[in-house]
Write a protein that binds this DNA or RNA. Structure first.
Lengths: 129, 129
DNA sequence: TGCGCCCTGTTATGTTATAACCTAGTTACA
DNA sequence: TGTAACTAGGTTATAACATAACAGGGCGCA
C-alpha cells in the first residue's frame, strides 16, 4: 500500500508542475542532475511510473513527454502545437459514443489514448506570433 | 508530383500487409536485410514517411509500430492486446462530438490520435486462450 | 539478530529515430 | 551536348527514449 510519494517522485512531480508544458524523461533527468547527487535514467522512469500509477502524471504518447494531467479525468488530452501547453477537455458524449461503437463490434476496451493536436484559443487569436 | 510508390516503399508496404499485426521500423529493417543489399534505418523511415504521406500506412503511437491502416478513415484505431491485430472502427458521432467540445474551447484541431486498446471479439469469446 | 520489503543507485544495454553528407539516375531545357 | 534541378537511395554516425539486472541501505517486525 502506497500512501505518499517518494523523494524522487516528489521531485519529478514538482519539476513537471513547474514547467510550462510537458517534459521528456531526459529533460527531467537534466534538471535533476543540476541538484546534488548522481541521477540516472531509471531513477526518472521509476518516479514517472509511480506518479502515473498514482494518477498524477500522464504520458503524452504523441510527444513522448510527460504532463501533470490527471489520468482519471474523463477528458481528452489537447495539445497546442504553438505554445506547447497541454490540457484536458471534458467530452462526456465522446466516451459514450466511443463505447457504443466498440460494443457494437464486440470489442472490450481496456484503455484509450486520445490526443488532439492543434492550436489553442490564445494562439489562434493572435496573442502570440 | 508523386504518382507511384518507390521501390523501398513498395517493399515496406508489402511487408506490413503480409504481417499479422503492426511492425516496428526495426522489424521491417530486419526483414529487408534478409534480401539482397544493405539496408539502414533511414531507408525504412523514409519509406514509412512516404507511405504515411500517401495515406497507406499509419503509425500506432502507443505501440511505436506501423500498420496498413488507411489514415483518412474517419475511424478510431482499435488494437487487440491479445492477438495483436489492428483495425479501424468507424465512429462518426465521436468525431462530431469531439469537434464540438473543442470548438467550444476555441481550440482548432489539426490532427487527432485516437487509439483504443483492449480485446477483440474473437479473443473475448475464447477462440484463443 | 535476521528476514523481507521498499526505495534508490549503478552499470550496461536495448530500442527507436534522425542528422548530415554523398552518389547516381532522370528530366528539362538552353 | 551540357548542366542545373530534382528525386531516390546509400552510408555513417549519433541522438533520443527506455529498460534489464544487480547491489546496497534503511526500516519494520517476528
Amino acid at each position: 500500500m502506497r500512501d505518499g510519494l517518494t523523494r524522487n517522485e516528489t521531485e519529478v512531480l514538482a519539476l513537471i508542475r513547474a514547467a510550462d508544458g510537458p517534459l521528456t524523461a531526459y529533460q527531467l533527468l537534466n534538471r535533476m542532475q543540476h541538484g546534488p547527487g548522481a541521477v540516472a535514467p531509471p531513477t526518472v522512469y521509476r518516479a514517472l511510473k509511480g506518479l502515473e500509477d498514482a494518477g498524477l502524471v500522464r504520458k503524452i504518447e504523441t510527444l513522448r513527454a510527460w504532463a501533470a494531467v490527471k489520468t482519471d479525468a474523463s477528458g481528452v488530452v489537447v495539445i497546442c502545437d504553438d505554445c506547447g501547453t497541454v490540457r484536458t477537455v471534458t467530452a462526456p458524449n465522446l466516451f459514450e459514443s466511443l463505447h457504443q461503437s466498440l460494443e457494437a463490434e464486440g470489442f472490450t476496451e481496456a484503455r484509450q489514448t486520445i490526443e488532439v493536436h492543434g492550436s489553442c484559443s490564445d494562439c489562434t487569436t493572435g496573442h502570440r506570433a
